[in-house]
Amino acid sequence: MTVPYPELDTPSLIVDLDAAEANIAEMAGVSARHGVRLRPHIKTHKMPAIARLQLDAGAAGITCAKLGEAEAMADAGCADILIAYPLWGRPKLERLAALRERARVRVSLDSVEVAERLGASAADPVQVLVEVDTGLHRLGRPPGAPTAELVAEVRKVPRVDVVGLLTHAGHSYRTTSPDELRAVAEREVTDLIETARLCGGELEISVGSTPTARYGAAVPGVTELRPGTYVFNDATMIRLGVATEATAAARILTTVVARPAPDRFVVDAGSKSLTSDGAGTPGWIMVAGRPELTMSFLSEEHGVGRCAPRTGPEIGERLEIIPSHACPVSNLFDTAYGVRGGRLDQELAVTARGRVR
């Protein structure tokens, strides 16, 4: 039995660097062809080395969800950062002020209350993007008049400069066909453009979501893309038709530790390595190169799979599993291992892991 990556213990997060670099180049090409700025979200990888690859390929800056992520990336030399999250509380505002001394920082918000706290704590104007709810129903007011009214209120706040509108079409993950996905993407953009018209003035149009990015970039009026998952992809992106097994760069290297029944095998990667996001969805996690194997369920330290009776992997065999959602998986490891051509190439520090504040 040939043992892949014998230097590594399991479970380990491995990143196919050739695939990741191809994904980075492809999305950079999409943005360049349409004249749209690319600002990838680093929540997927949380690794300064991967962020540097994205910036070197033409990204204008990065997006972070939390101040802690932004601080880690600024420490690594990232100088243009959007924190796509409302910041509240004195500790965070003090950290934001310190971060703004060493990087260009914009933030997003969806309330006057957050804007007022930002302005009151700032020595000079803070650039903000107002978040719009285009269908996810998470943050933001609905597009059109409700958001235009909010923008008018925020514009009155001293030392707060509204520079754009922002949205995240996370509801695109629930689409079931390319036509439906395209419709979500186009609606996301047109809603923002119409809202910007009602707001008056020149506003940036910043859209996110890996599934919708390629469609949204082609709609006139978009100024910025913020996809994250595209850099690694995952089983969800494969299900949505925007990735393939070959472009799924992040995998969990795992070992078969038991064959307790003829049609069942168990690996040493459970929910603490693979995340339980998407559990129950057909094909929610995949065994790379082994379509005859299916993963049934996860407990914390066990991954339970199914195979045809008296076939399938042997105890001690190593498998590469494509997770359902790459972003939380990166947050489960201190170190990832970059590989090329089946060989270990380098260690990758997951520096922003656990930076949830």
Rank of each mutant, 00 (worst) to 15 (best):
P11E: 08
Y337C: 00
A70T: 14
P309S: 05
L82N: 04
T223R: 00
E317A: 10
E26R: 11
E101G: 09
S12H: 04
P48N: 04
S273D: 06
T351Y: 10
R159G: 03
A25M: 06
V287C: 01
A258V: 10
V189W: 07
A349C: 06
R100Y: 14
E204L: 06
H41D: 01
G221F: 03
V30P: 00
G61K: 12
G221S: 08
A217D: 02
T351W: 06
L166R: 11
V329G: 00
A250L: 11
P125N: 05
G316H: 02
C199I: 01
D124A: 13
L17S: 02
A288G: 00
E186N: 11
L181T: 13
G338H: 13
P262V: 11
A57I: 05
R259E: 03
R106N: 05
A336C: 02
E204T: 02
A148S: 12
D234W: 06
A148P: 03
S299I: 07
G29W: 04
T134W: 04
A152P: 01
A79N: 12
N23Y: 02
Y85V: 01
G164K: 09
A115D: 03
S276N: 09
V266E: 07
G61L: 10
G270M: 12
A70N: 13
S111Y: 14
E116F: 09
S324Y: 10
P146M: 15
L13F: 07
P291Y: 14
S111K: 15
K46I: 05
V189Q: 10
I285S: 02
H325G: 01
G305Q: 05
M237V: 04
I252C: 10
D80S: 15
A235M: 06
D234Y: 05
Y337R: 04
P6T: 04
L240N: 05
